[in-house]
Design a protein around this nucleic acid. Structure first.
Length: 575
RNA sequence: GCGCCCGUAGCUCAGUGGAUAGAGUACUUGGCUUCGAACCAAGGGGUCGUAGGUUCAAAUCCUGCCGGGCGUACCA
């Protein structure tokens, strides 16, 4: 995670978990008593055979105290044996102190709630960022879902979140599209756009972009015309032109894109964005700022373009205003950052994009830092890899052989139907969302539709099923609530499940602290396995321990549901 | 060339200073007249890219090398 951080964070995302924290203090106090040394005790979760918590402090202290680590461990264990929260303290291996909690303490741990580490903070999240006039591909789907999940985590930690969507409605790509659109219409005839059926619009626009892109590379005359179209698109914003034929085409097609994005976001059931910021909106502020800072020497005019020299800081040099006098993406990002700062005065601003923009963003933030250090320092750039398809199909936006966002969803549906199930929308969404969420953010991911939709294995549909199955057990009991008693003695299999349940908050807090949602996936799958092992050998309905076990099942179902919701996945009652 | 990221089981991935490196999938085997078997149990499968170094302890930190991806001034 640190590797992706450009500047140190203004806001610390560290976390605490109450019971664990208290136990750490207890152990630290025991050590202080014994050896009169201050030490930070960190409790970890060992394999079940070793206990509920473990610590390696004895190993760490061995050198400092000049004592045998096992000897230290044994002394600390002895010191703690009077504490009724523990039922067993032992030293194992090279000197690990393993501790087993009293059942009541363990059950009490289920009451823990996630630390509200961001309470009172305003956190901006910018993600998805599709460009009007360009098609939405699988990568956009990934980045949208990553952003949605991270925003949910930040919100869960108590922050006031503001979800922002930045889109390039001006720029070379818009010029390419506009050139091809006008050509396809046989001239600047906006009325002809009405001939294109609503359902065809996204694909039609996508095809125009590909045409424009190819023409730009292959045909010098077209290239010149595209550069002109690009300038005209900028100009119509400057003059607020909604009247000319060119402007009418531009605004209509831009709206088609936004309508198409809205449809997709609705279909994905992501939390709605608070604000869409088109590039055209922040371009003037960006240009104004870069020009002003050019005079102050932050930027330099070099052979035509205005650049920021990143070499001094080990970064690239990048163009902010090109030789045509037009702002590049860099300048728009300057405008965007300052707009965010002006409008929200955020505590932290998180920008989520693909890896390819990592070094680019470092340059932009370094430039902003030169004249606006506070927003730059509070900005954090998170990056993720690209989506590849199982089977090695390589996607390229160049020639238009991309996999669109909708085709990914369709692939999941087809795979489901082919394997004999008939997945509904909810299952398809769960399949895709979970498949994208379960890998650590940063690396490329390989999407396998068949594996994602599969009902067995580590998949979204499997966890939905696990939830539905638990709920169906509860439905057999007439009782309305199934509260788990907090003062019971647990049988071994029950205890094992409670132990895993007690780790939920730690998993969520870790995911939040690291902004790595995959920790939740890893945990939820382990939890489902823990439950299945319990359920395999233990009767619930009709057993003399029915009340306790219904409480366990209820707690398990609720935990699964909460975890899935953090991933944006609905947990159905039935499947 | 330089910079950033990555390399763990056949495949897809967890694990990022600690105990015998774990899951899923695929393969082999056993378990349903009983609460949803979309499950469970067992087995085979690893020079953690490679060579050094640091450490009581390295898949994890440092260095070199090999292999891959991305970036590297007027795209975003």
């Amino acid at each position: 995670m640190e590797k992706h951080t450009v500047y140190s964070l203004h806001t610390s995302l560290c976390y605490t978990e109450v019971m664990k924290y208290e136990l750490e203090q207890v152990v630290a106090a025991a050590i202080k008593d014994l050896y009169d040394v201050e030490v930070v005790v960190e409790l970890t979760r060992p394999e079940e055979q070793f206990g509920d918590f473990a610590t390696n402090v004895a190993l760490q202290l061995a050198k400092r105290l000049g004592k045998n680590p096992r000897e230290i461990g044994e002394a600390v264990a002895e010191k703690l044996r009077g504490n009724e929260q523990f039922t067993e303290l032992s030293v194992a291996g090279p000197g690990f102190l393993n501790m087993r909690l009293h059942d009541i303490t363990l059950l009490g741990a289920l009451e823990a709630e996630s630390a509200k580490t961001l309470k009172g903070k305003t956190v901006l999240l910018e993600y998805s960022d599709p460009n009007p006039f360009k098609p939405l591909h699988a990568g956009h789907l990934y980045t949208t879902l990553v952003g949605d999940t991270i925003a949910r985590l930040v919100e869960h930690a108590g922050a006031k979140t503001i979800r922002l969507n930045f889109g390039g409605d001006v720029g070379l790509h818009a010029g390419k599209s506009m050139w091809a659109i006008v050509r396809a219409l046989g001239g600047e005839y906006p009325e002809k756009l009405a001939d294109i059926a609503e359902a065809e619009r996204p694909a039609w626009l996508g095809a125009r972009y590909v045409e424009g892109n190819n023409a730009y590379e292959e045909d010098d005359t077209a290239k010149q015309a595209i550069v002109t179209a690009n300038k005209r698109a900028y100009a119509l914003h400057d003059t607020n032109d909604h009247e000319s034929a060119f402007a009418q085409i531009y605004w209509t097609c831009r709206q088609w894109s936004y309508d198409y994005f809205a449809t997709l976001y609705t279909q994905l059931q992501v939390v709605p964005f608070d604000r869409f910021i088109p590039e055209s909106e922040v371009t003037p502020l960006g240009l104004e700022t870069v020009r002003a800072q050019l005079e102050k020497g932050v930027f330099v005019q070099s052979d035509g373009p205005v650049v920021f020299r990143g070499e001094d800081q080990g970064l690239h040099t990048r163009v902010f205003i090109n030789s045509e006098g037009l702002p590049t993406y860099e300048t728009k990002d300057v405008g965007l950052s300052l707009t965010k700062w002006r409008d929200y005065h955020f505590d932290e601003s998180i920008i989520i994009t693909a890896n390819e923009q990592m070094q680019y963003m470092q340059v932009v933030l370094a430039a902003i830092h030169a004249f606006a250090p506070e927003p730059a320092d509070r900005t954090r750039h998170l990056t993720h890899g690209v989506v590849k398809l199982q089977g090695g199909v390589k996607m390229s936006s160049r020639k238009g052989n991309i996999v669109t966002a909708l085709e990914i969803l369709e692939a999941a549906r087809v795979a489901g139907e082919a394997s004999g199930t008939d997945p509904n929308e909810e299952t398809i969404l769960a399949a895709v969302k979970y498949a994208f969420a379960k890998n650590r953010i940063g690396g490329d991911i390989v999407y396998d539709p068949l594996e994602s939709i599969a009902l067995e294995g580590n998949s979204g549909p499997y966890l939905q099923y696990a939830h539905a199955r638990a709920r169906s057990i509860l439905a057999k009991s007439p009782a309305e609530s199934h509260a788990l008693p907090k003062d019971v003695q647990l049988e071994a299999d029950e205890r094992s499940l409670v132990r895993t349940l007690s780790q939920y908050v730690e998993a969520v807090d870790r995911a939040t602290a690291e902004l790595m949602p995959h920790h939740i996936c890893t945990y939820l799958y382990e939890l489902a396995q823990a439950f299945n092992r319990f359920y395999e050998n233990n009767r619930v309905i009709g057993d003399e321990r029915e009340q306790i076990r219904l409480g366990l099942v209820s707690q398990y179902a609720a935990t699964l549901k909460q975890g899935l919701e953090l991933l944006g996945i609905h947990a159905p009652e039935r499947m």
